[in-house]
Simulated assay, not measured.
Amino acid sequence: MSNAASTRADHEIIINAVPQGARVLDVGCGDGVLLKRLKQERNAIVRGMELSQAGVNACVAKGLSVVQGDADLDLALYPDDSFDIVVLSRTIQATRKPEMVLKQMHRIGAKAVVSLPNFGFWQVRLSLLLNGRMPVTQGLPDSWHETENLHLCTLLDFDDLAKQSGFDLESVTRIAAGKASAPSRATSNVLNWLSEEAVFVLKRAWMPTR
């Protein structure tokens, strides 16, 4: 395992959420580190979508099947039920239309695994309260004018959006200071307060109107 991979606590949780041999689409797959591990450790049938050409090139160099695409536009090209699991790691907040992205994930996969930074984390709230400026933390490392994040939210906000998009919550796992806690079956105010980031495992509950 590379040092880069070992620093991603969300990757460990995502890998554990994927059954052996599952068909997986990783949306916003970056340089393919997670995809490669899913292929090696879970024997998954993996596909990726990545916006940047540099990321696509890195994935191809690893022997991975990845296409260049925009989650906001190109998920619509996949047929219904193309995958068992659709993964979105640290990407949902950078999309232009998060609800539409979730609904497309819901359509093409029976389950979704989503990791995201939490704007409801206590250090973020305290920094904003005391300094009166957009916070910079380990989970949100970029200044407001340099970040790729378009739609920051709290865990409670995301939980609501996932339900509106047709998902039930299977589990949510808190991450703080790079360490994961035991998974929970519900998103609570306490979890929202203590999570620097989190990983949601979602399962299809009903088909929303599109």
Rank of each mutant, 00 (worst) to 15 (best):
S2T: 12
S6R: 12
S6H: 07
R8H: 02
A9W: 00
E12K: 15
N16C: 09
A17K: 09
V18Q: 03
V18N: 01
Q20C: 15
R23T: 11
V24A: 06
L25P: 01
D26W: 13
D26S: 04
G30Q: 08
G32N: 02
G32R: 12
G32C: 09
V33W: 05
R37V: 10
L38I: 06
K39D: 15
E41I: 08
R42F: 03
N43H: 15
I45G: 00
R47I: 03
R47F: 10
M49C: 07
M49P: 01
L51Y: 11
L51K: 14
V56P: 02
V56Y: 02
N57T: 10
V60P: 04
A61C: 05
L64Y: 02
V66A: 08
Q68M: 10
D70C: 07
A71N: 00
A71H: 05
D72H: 06
L73S: 13
P79F: 11
S82W: 02
S82Y: 00
D84G: 10
D84M: 02
L88Y: 05
L88N: 00
S89I: 11
R90G: 11
R90D: 15
Q93P: 11
T95S: 08
R96G: 01
P98W: 12
L102W: 04
L102Q: 03
M105I: 07
M105C: 01
H106R: 14
I108R: 01
G109D: 01
G109E: 08
A112V: 05
F119D: 01
F121Y: 13
V124G: 06
R125G: 00
S127I: 00
S127N: 13
S127W: 02
L130Y: 04
N131H: 04
G132M: 04
M134G: 03
P135H: 04
T137C: 04
Q138Y: 13
G139Q: 05
G139V: 03
D142T: 01
D142R: 04
W144Q: 03
E148C: 09
E148A: 13
C153I: 10
L156Q: 10
L156T: 09
D157M: 06
Q164D: 11
Q164N: 14
S165C: 15
L169F: 07
V172L: 09
V172H: 08
T173A: 07
G178Q: 11
K179Y: 13
A180N: 05
S181Y: 14
A186I: 08
T187A: 05
L191H: 02
N192E: 05
N192Y: 01
N192C: 08
W193G: 02
L194I: 13
E197T: 02
V199H: 09
V199G: 06
L202A: 07
L202Y: 08
K203Q: 02
A205N: 07
M207H: 13
T209S: 12
R210N: 13
